[in-house]
Design a protein around this nucleic acid. Structure first.
Lengths: 229, 229
DNA sequence: GTCTATAATCCGATAGAC
DNA sequence: GTCTATCGGATTATAGAC
């Protein structure tokens, strides 16, 4: 009993140090020797708790995934489906910007490790993220904010966009200040949501509907006066 | 003269072998010793032409980038702006699916190499890709297929979505057959384009416009009386 | 320019004593 | 469970002969 407890604690201690080490030195700087030094034990001792270096890193990326999911989940405190959706996007962005190493690790782990397919621990977690976005879509459709459609696919469209944009920025490929990017991300996310939305969504976003507005002379005028940008 | 020519040829030969080696064995399996063996010279000879392993790989990922850009550029043979846009998306997808190692390398190189910022060679190429999408957007706006808007931002929205979706699939996170994915990608891309489009775009895509369809007085009233939550 | 030979590190992982 | 010691291998990079 006591042995098991010690084992578990030690494993957690190692994992905590491993996360710190990765966040500090990245993949390339992550070695079992350094980890042992940080934990305060010898290198071979680590192998009592983890089979090898890869298994340690799988657990680190698992932690990264879980922390991201917890951040997303906090968006569920929003009052309405739309608010929850917007808060989720904001939380996703926050996580990517505040924890770039974690965000990047989640999405480049396989390449770095030279894996051809995702280990189950990660595949399951990716499914949870996908499901999360799908749920956000479903409740927006249920409350008539989005047009009825295949929720899985719409969720995927929005997830892919959010991930793609954050990934590009996180790697420094978009040369704009962070505050400008944050606004651009929100706008881009809404742009898609808006394009998928029912008429009501437009008013909720405080914007004028343009698609199909050519049928409406008054709207035509509004569009001219209040162009989207 | 002759010396320079030999230098250049040798460098190209090494680079070609380096690309093959990476495509065969991936990042993890890429070593200078293997490369030397493939080229048919000794390991130290490589250092006459490349400063170190990282510089070789930077050139390999540069090749990957250029090949992707050439694939995209072939979409410019399309007859209309919209056709060129659709062909570009198709070409992007084709590249990602046919050359997954190249596609993944382009977007995970920095993490794998432990770089905090993109080397100029890659940053410039990323700008070219961004510009490419922006150009596709601009000509669609110019021909009244898309609503007038900031072309750079709309281009980014579409690029981010396409990249994100391809990245997720390329890593095996979406468990669907390739043919189904291809159709899903096209649909998802059009879904966004459609949401951004003028009424004409809907007809071109052979779909009915939904957004704004309720934009009549009755709908206006309904919305006021039954506020969306 | 290319070679052989080798230096100097660093790594993951294991053996065996305690 | 942890230690010391070590194996076996990888890496980048240089020195000096040809």
């Amino acid at each position: 009993m006591c042995t098991v407890l010690t084992m578990t604690n030690m494993r957690h201690r190692i994992l905590a140090c491993a996360c710190d080490l990765y966040l500090r030195d990245g993949f390339k700087g992550f070695s079992m020797r350094k980890l042992a030094r940080d934990v305060g034990v010898s290198a071979p001792a680590l192998y009592r708790h983890f089979e090898n270096r890869e298994k340690v890193l799988i657990d680190v990326v698992g932690e990264a995934h879980d922390e991201m999911f917890r951040a997303l989940s906090r968006a569920l405190s929003g009052a309405t489906p739309l608010e929850r959706f917007e808060m989720a996007a904001e939380a996703y962005m926050d996580f990517a910007l505040k924890h770039p190493r974690y965000f990047q690790m989640i999405h480049s782990f396989m390449q770095v490790m030279g894996m051809d397919e995702a280990p189950p621990e990660l595949a399951h977690r990716a499914c949870a993220i996908q499901q999360f976005w799908e749920d956000r879509v479903r409740e927006c459709i249920d409350t008539d904010i989005l047009r009825p459609d295949n929720t899985e696919r719409i969720g995927l469209t929005l997830w892919a966009h959010a991930y793609g944009l954050l990934s590009l920025y996180s790697r420094g490929l978009l040369v704009i200040p962070e505050e400008d990017f944050r606004e651009e991300f929100r706008t881009s996310h809404r742009r898609i949501l808006f394009g998928l939305g029912k008429e009501a969504a437009g008013r909720i976003f405080g914007r004028t509907i343009h698609v199909g507005a050519e049928h409406d002379q008054a709207a035509e005028t509004r569009q001219t006066m209040e162009p989207i940008r």
